[in-house]
Design a protein around this nucleic acid. Structure first.
Lengths: 130, 130
DNA sequence: ACTTGACCTTCCAGCGACTGGAAGCCCTAT
DNA sequence: ATAGGGCTTCCAGTCGCTGGAAGGTCAAGT
């Protein structure tokens, strides 16, 4: 398979796949013409990476997850710990965004949104008080 | 005021304040020795920026918000539209993170987390199926 | 045989919003 | 005179790509 096929099948841009090779996540073979030649195992890894990235794992997490995946002597606890740590980070991020949303939502609702200059949003930003 | 004082009072790192000058958000004066000299109005702007950034507005949004703040002929609708658009982005982001969280949470709970290698988290990443 | 166009290659730069660090000047206190 | 702290500029790095330039390769059509 060439990079275009793999990109299609893995659902990742070709640029991303080249980047993943650059940083050592995959090591496809090369044809005589210099084109990358991907094995099924490469495609499999890329799909794995795509799903892990879609769950928000960092590239370094993905590297670790791939290593664990390929290590038949792994302890599932190691995977779980990694995932749990990531889950906690996501939950923190959600809480932070929800706090922003609550404040913003309040401000937006309190603003008339007309032609006049008076604006509680700007007042709040200016003074930190409502 | 020197940069250290302003950093303390605005609750922003000195580095960030220099960066804000670089990109033209503020233009403090200079003393003969080359040190930045901040007026009250600079401090006020920095506090404004700090609050806007804390609500997740981008730097370019902040630039626009500052301009609106200083324009006494603004229409509050312009501010509201900007804030509403930002609010929508935050809500999208929250939804995306919640989706990740739900999937991850399920996976984490289904993993024994012991010494054995069997791991539903890795199985899911490998196959995309549960 | 030649050309077109799609595909592939590498390399370099840029995104956003800082952050760290190096090298060096300035000011105050001892 | 020296030590320290604060200030300056400039450059590089963060994260995970993404865009674009310049050029090689291949298969199909004329």
């Amino acid at each position: 398979m060439n990079i275009g096929d793999v990109a299609q099948r893995a659902g990742l841009p070709a640029k991303t796949i080249r980047y993943y090779e650059d940083i050592g996540l995959i090591t496809p073979l090369r044809d005589d013409n210099g084109y990358r030649r991907f094995r099924e195992s490469d495609l499999h890894k890329l799909a794995f990476l795509g799903r892990a990235r879609a769950l928000g794992f960092t590239i370094e997490d993905c590297r670790t997850l791939l290593a664990l995946y390929e290590d038949n002597t792994r302890a599932s606890a190691d995977v779980k710990d990694l995932a749990q740590a990531h889950l906690t980070k996501i939950e923190d991020k959600i809480a932070q965004l929800q706090s922003m949303r609550d404040t913003l939502s309040e401000l937006v609702h309190s603003c008339a949104g007309d032609n006049r200059p008076d604006c509680p949003i700007l007042s709040d930003l200016a003074t930190g008080e409502h």
